[in-house]
Amino acid sequence: MDRGLDKVAKKLVKIMDLPADAILDLPRITMVGNTEVSIENHKGIEKYTSTETVIRFQSGQMRVYGRRLAIRFIDRDGLKLEGIIANIEFAGQQ
């Protein structure tokens, strides 16, 4: 998305209280305790090991650190990661 257009879209989302994930193509992340994280609207995986998994988004990425990490399911729309999650980091512009 063009930077100018992106700014307009962000303002529009704020003013009109629109769903940001649908308009700005942002990921929707759901966590269940520290054992499960579900991500919608991802753009693939960058790295996948049992201790670290890097998931790409439209703008930036998310790093999940932990133990026994396993991708329970992945397709175009969503991803579900299970394991003992210790830490999550976000990088890139949001």
């Binding site: 693939g44 996948y48 396993a70 329970r72 399911f73 992945i74 397709d75 175009r76």
Partner: peptide, 17 residues
């Protein structure tokens, strides 16, 4: 490869390294 599979709309599950 996983990204290509997912990007084509194919689902892959119980993925373990």
């Amino acid at each position: 490869l996983i990204n290509r599979i997912a990007g084509h709309g194919f689902g892959i599950w119980d993925l373990e390294r």
